[in-house]
């Protein structure tokens, strides 16, 4: 098709067919309990960091599952690791370990000079 240079902001749809699942697969391998999340938001509501800033644990999990790694790698720095999320999770997900694994993998990807 001829390029008419129309303004196109680009689709913001979640593209399920092409998403970056490197982090997700890594987390699932070492913390399989993550698979049972039902996005109830209990973690976010109780979160000490979320109480102080717009940090959202549930969204961290959601972004992980959708491969939105870039957003995630910045947001996750706000976590204070207090463990309340793990204590309220109705699905017994080891959320602290999920966070630790994400941090670990991100730092590994960074040192391997791979885009995060």
């Amino acid at each position: 098709m001829e390029d008419f240079s129309f303004l196109n902001p680009g689709s913001r749809q979640i593209d399920f067919d092409n998403f970056d699942d490197r982090l997700l697969l890594y987390v699932l391998e070492y913390e399989p309990s993550f698979v049972t999340c039902i996005s109830c938001g209990g973690c976010t509501a109780t979160c000490s960091a979320g109480n102080l800033t717009n940090f959202n644990v549930r969204k961290i999990g959601l972004w992980l599952r959708r491969g939105e790694t870039e957003k995630l790698s910045q947001e996750i720095e706000k976590c204070m690791f207090c463990g309340k999320c793990t204590l309220v999770c109705p699905r017994d997900i080891n959320i602290r370990n999920v966070i630790l694994l994400i941090k670990k993998r991100i730092s590994e990807l960074k040192t391997e000079n791979q885009p995060v």
């Binding site: 109830c40 938001g41 209990g42 976010t44 109780t46 979320g50 959202n56 549930r58």
Partner: peptide, 29 residues
């Protein structure tokens, strides 16, 4: 409101402060 209550706290007037996430808006409530 789609979100699980995480905790309640009693205020001096005996009303209750609730903390949950509005998971559809993605913001703590």
């Amino acid at each position: 409101i789609r979100g699980r209550l995480s905790e309640a706290a009693e205020r001096p007037d005996k009303s209750l402060q609730l903390k949950a996430e509005d998971t559809l808006q993605g913001r703590p409530l």
